[in-house]
Design a protein around this nucleic acid. Sequence first.
DNA 1: AAATATCATTTGAATAGTCAAGTGATAGGG
DNA 2: CCCTATCACTTGACTATTCAAATGATATTT
Lengths: 147, 147
Amino acid sequence: MQKNTRGSLIWLRLTRFTHQSNLLSNDFLKQFDLTTAQFDVLMQISTYEPLTQSELAEKVTVTQGGISRMLARLEKEGLIERKQEWKTKTISLTNKGREKLDSAFEDQLEFQSSFFDECLSEEEQKMLYSLMSRVQKNSEEKKLPKR
Amino acid sequence: MQKNTRGSLIWLRLTRFTHQSNLLSNDFLKQFDLTTAQFDVLMQISTYEPLTQSELAEKVTVTQGGISRMLARLEKEGLIERKQEWKTKTISLTNKGREKLDSAFEDQLEFQSSFFDECLSEEEQKMLYSLMSRVQKNSEEKKLPKR
DNA sequence: AAATATCATTTGAATAGTCAAGTGATAGGG
DNA sequence: CCCTATCACTTGACTATTCAAATGATATTT
């Protein structure tokens, strides 16, 4: 037993890194009173607004239920608006949401980049991006039975 | 606005992949009546048992509180045992836990590997492992203030 | 021995997510 | 005009996690 495969070792590194960087990022974003997940969602809304909940769910790869709860929280905080429009709800940022995102945007992107800048060369980062793009797309294609 | 940095793009791929592969893995492990997180914890226990909760928390990079709840669930299922021993609780697998882990082990490692085997060559996998090892170690060093 | 410090674990309140069943709005047949 | 199907969203029950405050168990100091 205990002969780990290369794949499982890569998988472990990815998992641990993602978890750790999320914690650090949450801690970093505390100054803006945001979480990493919230920042992610606000970014997507800002890029694609106006859009429906299902479209947004697709973008952030979260279930409809998940997005519903997330948006309920963001709405309570006054960062986004939902308008029932036809049988759909249309989502957009409020001014407050846009301001908050703007204030955090540059710092957060810089923060994210620092994880890679600190230990990889430009070339290596390109390599990593290209490898992960393929791996990520591949996983996206392995769809769950009925999502 | 909206000029994403390379770092933030890598970060997004990593996040999306990890999330997606977790879902798929949960779905896969359903046949063994396990979740990905539980498999991870059982693996670590099996490798290092007997060990204390704090040691385990360290291994799976989860907080003490997190490990406490996780173990409570696993104990309820009869997969692990906790013995108060001195001021510490010592954790070990039960026979049931060991059997369950054994039954899932090979399939799960194969499953994890498939994410990479399907789209990367051997060389590329080595590359990815080496890059991610550096990135992950780097993130581990950026410790949170007081963990 | 009593008071206090220290370490390990638990627990309350929260975020973030899943799945699956339920609700609301509208469109189309009968 | 009601019945039903269908899409979009919500909600209940659950896992998994965080942080921070509380509890337990033992060791030390007076």
